[in-house]
Structures are given as C-alpha cells and as structure tokens.
Design a protein around this nucleic acid. Structure first.
Lengths: 136, 136
DNA sequence: ATGCTTTTGGTACTTTAGTATGACCTGTTT
DNA sequence: AAACAGGTCATACTAAAGTACCAAAAGCAT
C-alpha cells in the first residue's frame, strides 16, 4: 500500500518533469511537437501497464490465502490441520505418521475427528470440502 | 487473439488522430502545449491499463481451463476421466458406479488404470497430481 | 471382416481406511 | 485440586480401496 503511494508520487514527478522538458524543447525549437507527444504517450502507456500490474497482483493473491477464521469455527486443532494438509497431499495414514513422528493409530484418530468436523464420509471428500472452505 | 489485433489497430488510429489534433491546436493557438501533452498522457495511461487488463485476464483464465493435451498424453480415456472427476468430488467407488450406471467392479478397474497412468498410489494422490497437471 | 481400444464385469485377494472404545499423559483453566 | 482440552496410542472390528487376472461385448478404423 505504501509502495503504491511512493510509486504514484514518482509518476507525478515524472509527469511534471516531462511538462518542463517538453515546454523547453518546443521553445528552443530543437524537438518537434509530435516527438514530444509520442514520448509522453509511450511513457504513460507503460505507466498504465505497470500500475495495473501492481494492483492486479494483489487481487490475484487474495483467493490463495486461507480462511483461518473458518478453521477455528470448525474447531479444527493445529495437529488435525497438519494431518488435513498431508491428506490433501495424497499421503496415507502411515506416511503421515512417519512425517509427524506419531503412530498410524494417532493419525487415524485425527483423521476420524477431521471427517466429523468437516462432515465428510471419506478423506477425498474432506479435501474437497476443505478446499471449498478455503482452509487448505 | 483477433480481438487484440483489432484493439491495437484502433489504438494506432487514435494515436494518429491525436497527432493531427494536437498539431492543429498548436498551430491555431487555441490550446496550450501542456494541455495537449496532458491529454495524451492520460489517454495512453488508460490505454496501458486496458491493454494489460486484457492480456492479464487471459493469463488468469489459463489455470482454470483444463489441459486436454495432457490428458491425451497420459492416455486417459473419456470414461477414466469421468471417474477421475468424481474421485476429486470425494465420491466412493460405489457412488461413482451409481452415477455412471455401472458396477463397482468396473469403477475399480478404471480407478486402478487411473492410478497407473497418473503414477499415483492412492486416489487422494491421484487428485493432487491431476490438479498439478491441470487436467481437473 | 479383422484387429484394435475401450468399456464392462467378475472372482479372489491384500491393503488402507475408518469406527468404536478405552486409556494415559500434559498443559490450561476454574 | 479438579475439570478440561489436546495429543498420544492400542485393540478389535467393519468397510472401502486397490491389485491381479481373466473374459466378453461394443465401437472404431484399416
């Protein structure tokens, strides 16, 4: 946000500089008016592209971040959430257990709790629901 | 693609028109040179924004639409693809069979083939890989 | 027509996944 | 201290999922 303001400020300065430059050039007669306008046109074309790119990259990132509020609303604990992430990665209960240094039994417990909390019948359905909630 | 070319053509025409207009205005002396440049700057700023928006909306939509070429490269058949979609919806083999009016055995056959073709060990992993390939 | 691929479906089997229940330990709250 | 929540793990069970192998019907291309 601050960055955008700074960039805008610089653009305004550039605009003023161009005005001065073009005025001088016309007065001194060593540059044609068409060239001055063309340069301004090109510069502001790219300024437009740049500004839009900046503002758009923010909009793009919005759908990517996770809904932490929703996770809490569903009473999903930290450990359960870790397991959920691994499920979405396609790991088996055994593999998840190895990654978290716990037994397969423990993972099964977590998975069962996740299924109840997400109201899912299967782990595949849990992944789908979790993605709809944007929690993964 | 064609649309972009047409839009570009119109912009070039606009550019030429502006040149004529500004030249006339300066000669006739009823418009200051600063104003002319300012107008050009503003117009091309918005042109830049518009062009970037157009090109970006295409980039945005690309991740959304499916890579049909990849599906064919993986030798995934129509039926297998249907099953794959239902897997990603979180359905069980039985439920998929009911939806496609085939037996659970048939679905199992398809699922096994999908796993081999996607090089996955589990249906959850198949979903993850399929999403990476952008085929679902 | 005759290969070819796809789709279908079965049997028999092994492996995961998931449920139910109970237990123990550890911080945190009351 | 007692209650509570979170995490751990086990046993025993049922239910899906997945593999292997086979076989037949249907669709299609040469």
């Amino acid at each position: 946000m601050k960055k955008t303001i700074v960039v805008f400020g610089l653009f305004i300065l550039a605009l003023l500089s161009l005005f001065q430059l073009s005025k001088y050039s016309v007065v001194s007669g060593d540059m044609k008016i068409e060239n001055a306008i063309a340069i301004v046109a090109i510069i502001f074309f790219f300024i437009g592209v740049y500004i839009h790119k900046k503002s758009f990259s923010k909009i793009e990132k919005e759908p990517e971040d996770i809904d932490i509020t929703k996770i809490k609303d569903l009473d999903i604990t930290k450990r359960e959430y870790e397991v959920l992430k691994f499920i979405s990665e396609g790991l088996s209960n055994k593999e998840i257990g190895d990654k978290l240094f716990v037994s397969e039994s423990t993972v099964k417990t977590h998975v069962s709790n996740i299924l109840v909390k997400l109201n899912a019948k299967r782990r595949t359905q849990a992944v789908k629901i979790a993605k709809q909630y944007q929690i993964i």
